[in-house]
């Protein structure tokens, strides 16, 4: 049930005790550290049905999906949008992997797939429902399966297993160092947080981030997609806006939505990964920030195996 390790160490009061813990709070992370005065959301594109899955590549281009219209677009670093793929079978969450392919939750065909930049598609796994995914710097995948209340892990060798259940998952993200996984539930006032073990198992789950803020007309936050920045801030889309948390799980503030409609997901993109891109129902926006994102594939070259 519980364990303790008594470090057989009787310290008398005149002895030396090294106090390692400072009572002072962790560094405060206010919105002013993120938002640039005078910079607001810029509309990049509109006329879509429901946009989702923003995912940045090595050049800073941002892919996104229009789920009901079965298309994936890509935004170049100047903000221009071009068609990337058609007939996407309601593909939802996207993320670029260390192999520079664009991975996606192709939920209409119950597949997880990967596209090369020339548009060629490979099926990674079949027979699963999915919503959102992350791809690690080693090429492993975590994806959420809201229909069955599970989170799956696909190893780099393509072995798949359930690593979390008893959850109604929606969005999924990792800390920049890939040691901690965070999962949203639309109706919960917190975000679930897990430790990622070396074999992809998820342990020590906790309601670490919270409480989320509510819009005055709603009893639930409607938490959806997430992104993280270099300093381990975590951003989660909600009905109220983009709620930003510091790495100790405390709300730093809520960035206003660009419009009154839905805001489903966000990511950092642009040449220096310092623009926040947001998929907001029929529209897609971006805004300049003072911080930068850190796509996991950038770690692929750094890590020594």
């Amino acid at each position: 049930m519980r364990r303790c390790f008594v470090v057989a160490n009787v310290v008398f009061l005149c002895g030396i005790i090294v106090a390692k813990v400072s009572p002072l709070p962790a560094q405060d992370m206010a919105l002013s550290q993120v938002l640039v005065d005078g910079e607001d959301w810029q509309l990049l594109g509109e006329g879509y049905k429901f946009t989702e899955g923003p995912a940045v590549d090595r050049q800073g281009h941002v892919y996104f999906t229009d789920i009901p219209n079965n298309v994936i677009y890509v935004i170049d670093t100047d903000g221009a949008i071009v068609l990337f793929a058609e007939n996407t079978a309601n593909t939802n969450g996207l993320m670029v992997g260390p192999d520079d392919r664009i991975y996606g939750c192709r939920n209409g065909d119950k597949q997880i797939v990967a596209y090369t930049t020339d548009g060629a598609m490979e099926v990674i796994v079949e027979g699963v429902t999915s919503n959102d995914l992350v791809v690690t710097s080693k090429g492993a995948i975590f994806f959420t399966d809201p229909s069955n209340g599970q989170v799956y892990y696909i190893s780099p060798q393509r072995e798949m297993r359930v690593v979390a259940n008893e959850i109604h998952p929606n969005g999924v993200i990792m800390w920049p160092d890939e040691g901690t996984l965070v999962v949203t539930e639309r109706d919960s006032l917190h975000l679930w947080t897990y430790r990622i073990e070396s074999d992809g198992s998820l342990t020590n789950r906790e309601r670490y981030y919270g409480p989320l803020q509510l819009r005055s007309d709603s009893k639930t936050p409607g938490s959806d997609g997430m992104t993280v920045d270099r300093d381990f801030r975590l951003y989660v889309t909600t009905r109220l806006g983009l709620q930003m948390f510091d790495p100790t799980g405390r709300l730093g503030g809520t960035i206003a939505k660009p419009h009154n409609g839905p805001m489903a997901n966000a990511c950092f993109g642009g040449k220096d990964f310092d623009y926040l891109y947001a998929t907001c129902g029929d529209k897609v926006y971006r805004r300049k920030t003072k911080v930068t994102g850190v796509p996991y594939f950038l770690r692929a070259g750094e890590k020594k195996e």
């Binding site: 390692k20 813990v21 709070p25 962790a26 800390w175 160092d177 890939e178 040691g179 901690t180 947080t193 430790r195 990622i196 073990e197 070396s198 020590n204 906790e206 309601r207 670490y208 381990f232 790495p247 100790t248 799980g249 405390r250 890590k303």
Partner: peptide, 20 residues
């Protein structure tokens, strides 16, 4: 002391549980 969830790998941040 407040709790810490140790990281899996040495180059990863532990989860500092103090505020939670």
């Amino acid at each position: 002391s407040p709790g810490v969830v140790p990281a899996t790998e040495p180059d990863q941040k532990p989860r500092n549980n103090r505020s939670f």
